[in-house]
């Protein structure tokens, strides 16, 4: 029964991702001035979205951990941070692919770029602080760090924004200025990426739970 449910989940995920690739590749029109390289934008935005989402999850789990001290909550935070760092890496890698032909540079110190990079550093530090999460104090420290780091994100953004900005603004106060088919493609890829996030988080969590169980069993065997 459990296996069946997992298979269905996997099937839905596959359909979503394949459909997403079709929508991005065939359905969405090719941008008039930027050409085909603009299509990287769908992956770029969706990865950034997952990176942010994962960071919010880490923040909420950190508060919850300090409050309730549940190991489960900490495992969710760890899984989220690990997936977050992967997707933030995707954002940082897909950005330059687009930026080089369009901006004529691989990297600039734009606030969004700077913030994303700092976010990546903080994720890495968070995971290093967890250090496998075996010791109770490491989990506690990581939770404290997760909260401080989250509060730090807007500070990084605004300090970098006052300094300089050239990033294109897709979502402004007047709404999104995109072709409707491009909008569909963007939504589709955000949905597909979110499903991927949920799936990866579930997989990672089950591994963490198994590891915990092995540790407990081993301890019981020794004593």
């Amino acid at each position: 029964m459990r296996l069946d449910r997992r298979m269905i989940g996997l099937l839905i995920l596959t359909v979503l991702i394949v459909g997403n690739i079709y929508i991005i590749g065939i359905y969405a029109p090719i941008e008039r001035t930027m050409g085909v390289v603009q299509k990287v934008f769908y992956f770029h935005i969706s990865s950034a979205w997952i990176g942010m989402l994962a960071f919010v999850v880490v923040f909420l789990c950190s508060i919850l951990y300090l409050w309730r001290r549940s190991e489960e909550v900490n495992q969710v935070a760890v899984a989220s941070a690990e997936i977050g760092v992967v997707f933030i890496s995707c954002t940082l890698l897909t950005g330059p692919i687009w930026a080089y032909p369009i901006w004529n540079t691989w990297w600039t110190w734009d606030p969004r770029l700077t913030t994303t990079l700092v976010l990546w550093f903080m994720y890495a530090a968070y995971i290093a602080l967890q250090g496998g999460g075996a010791a109770e104090n490491r989990r506690r420290f990581a939770a404290v760090y997760g909260i401080i780091a989250f509060i730090n994100v807007p500070l990084v953004f605004f300090s970098a924004r006052w300094w300089r900005s050239i990033h294109p603004v897709i979502v402004s106060s007047e709404g999104m200025n995109l072709d409707p088919r491009m909008k569909t493609a963007l939504y589709a890829s955000i949905i597909a990426f979110s499903a991927l996030y949920v799936h990866l988080a579930k997989m990672r969590l089950s591994v963490l739970r198994l590891r915990k169980r092995v540790e407990t069993l081993r301890e019981n065997l020794v004593y």
């Binding site: 700092v118 420290f141 404290v144 730090n152 300090s159």
Partner: peptide, 26 residues
């Protein structure tokens, strides 16, 4: 105060510098 309690206290710069970026810019 955190890193001193850990066996590997070399973590301090990794934790510290990302948090200090806004201050650094300013």
């Amino acid at each position: 105060a955190m890193t001193v309690q850990l066996p590997n206290s070399r973590l301090l710069p990794i934790l510290m510098f990302p948090l200090l970026i806004p201050l650094f810019i300013a």
